[in-house]
Each structure stands twice: as structure tokens, then as C-alpha cells.
């Protein structure tokens, strides 16, 4: 039975124009991530890991190819449709937390809920629950400048999950953290995957971080393998 949260990338091409040169990042790329998987995307810099993540999250569009996430084809969505789709389906965690300094931890977590029909009380309840899940209930009134790097990243995770998206896309979420804090953050992500069935795609350079994933994709070898298959098929 097909699960609605599968991520299917078919024959994706992505290239950038840099001056007179065209830089090809993804060339006839195919990937399927099943619903409920925690996938770590690894590989050397410049290979297209973040680009892949941005394509899955609707932050960027492929030059060509087909992207189906859940039951919906997203590669041909307009900007406004993408925006709405992102709000409903995707949670992002970036290396930098990008919290708004003028809002408390609670206010930052409530922010995505401003796009939902929830009333103020419901928004507060949802945000409190999300903060509780990441162990930040006691810091809900604190502003970002009053929090440590690890605490800020926890709040960023709470913000990513508060509207209950099916998919979490994490771009080096522990890149700025020490080992101990990084482990705590990774444990939270693993718990979200295990206990709440969130599909997680995480870009990382850290082998230790990858150990928390249910599947590790080394993009370099994965692409080589794909090319071989393509050549073989030809």
C-alpha cells in the first residue's frame, strides 16, 4: 500500500547559471524516501545535498524532472501554491536557527501557527506542547539572546514541528553545536521519527549524526551507482 508521505524524485535535473557557465548539480537524479524513514544525506561539499533538500522542501525548483511528495506532484507548483504547501507539509531545521530576536521562545514557536485557523489559546497550547517535546518548557518565556546554541536549536525544532508536518527537512542541524548538545538534538529528531512517525531527511557531514538515521545515503556513491545503472540500461 502506498503511503502518502513518500518522497519520490524522478529524473531530476538541476543546474545553475554562474556567469557564462552552467553548473550542473543534479543530473538525471532519482531517489525515493519512504514514509517514516529517517534518512541521513552525506557526502562531500558541492555535491548537491542542500540543493536536494531545498528541492524536497519546495524552496527551489528543479530545472526538469518530477517530484512527488505524498500524493501531490510539486515540481510544477506556482510560488503561492508552494508557500501554502510548505506551511502544511514541511518543517525546516537549519544549521542556524534563524529565530526572531523580538519574540520569546514561545512566540517563535507560535509563529507558523499564525497561518492556521487556530485561535490564540489553541496556538499557545500547541506551542507549549512542542516546547515540552524538545525539553524547553521552562525556557518558554526566554528570548533567543538568553538561550544557548543548543537551546536555540531545540526551539527551532519545536517551531518546525508545531504545525505537525509529516516531513522534517534538516540541513546540518548540529553543525554549530558541540558533541554533547548535538547528541541531544539528534536524540530529539530520532524520537520524533520513532514515536511520531515523522519522515526526516537530514543533511550532515557528521558520521556520528548519521548513526541516528534509519538509512544513510552517501550521495557520491549513490550517484555513481545511479550512473552505472543508467549506462547499463543504455
Amino acid at each position: 500500500m502506498k503511503n502518502n508521505n513518500d518522497i519520490i524524485l524522478k529524473d531530476i535535473n538541476k543546474s545553475y547559471q554562474k556567469g557564462d557557465n552552467t553548473v550542473v548539480v543534479l543530473d538525471h537524479f532519482n531517489l525515493t524516501i519512504n514514509s517514516g524513514e529517517f534518512v541521513a544525506l552525506m557526502g562531500p561539499s558541492g555535491l548537491g545535498k542542500s540543493t536536494l533538500l531545498h528541492l524536497m522542501g519546495g524552496l527551489d525548483q528543479p530545472t526538469s524532472g518530477e517530484m512527488v511528495i505524498g500524493a501531490q506532484r510539486i515540481d510544477n507548483l506556482k510560488e503561492a501554491q508552494f508557500t501554502k504547501w510548505r506551511a502544511e507539509n514541511i518543517g525546516f531545521v537549519f544549521q542556524s536557527h534563524h529565530l526572531l530576536p523580538v519574540l520569546s521562545a514561545q512566540g517563535n514557536v507560535e509563529l507558523p501557527l499564525a497561518l492556521t485557523p487556530l485561535n490564540k489559546k489553541q496556538r499557545q497550547e500547541h506551542a507549549s506542547y512542542a516546547l515540552e517535546l524538545v525539553g524547553m518548557s521552562d525556557r518558554s518565556k526566554h528570548y533567543p539572546k538568553e538561550l544557548s546554541g543548543g537551546q536555540e536549536q531545540r526551539v527551532a525544532i519545536a517551531r518546525a514541528i508545531v504545525s505537525d508536518p509529516n516531513i522534517l527537512l534538516c540541513d546540518e542541524p548540529t553543525g554549530n553545536l558541540d558533541r554533547k548538545t548535538a547528541n541531544e538534538i539528534l536524540a530529539i529528531l530520532a524520537q520524533l521519527n520513532r514515536d511520531f512517525g515523522k519522515t526526516i531527511v537530514m543533511v550532515t557531514h557528521d558520521n556520528k549524526a548519521a548513526e541516528y538515521a534509519t538509512r544513510v545515503i552517501n550521495l557520491e556513491s549513490y550517484m555513481l551507482e545511479q550512473n552505472k545503472c543508467t549506462v547499463g540500461e543504455n
Binding site: G57, L59, E79, A80, T83, K84, R86, A87, E88, F92, F94, S96, H98, L100, L111, P112, A114, L115, R159
Partner: peptide, 14 residues
């Protein structure tokens, strides 16, 4: 600009 980009990523329209 970073915050605006983040808000757009969260689903806030331009």
C-alpha cells in the same frame, strides 16, 4: 533578510 527568508520558508507569503 535571513528572518524574512525563514518566514517565507515557514509558509508566510511575500
Amino acid at each position: 533578510s535571513n528572518e524574512s527568508a525563514m518566514m517565507k520558508a515557514l509558509g508566510f507569503s511575500s
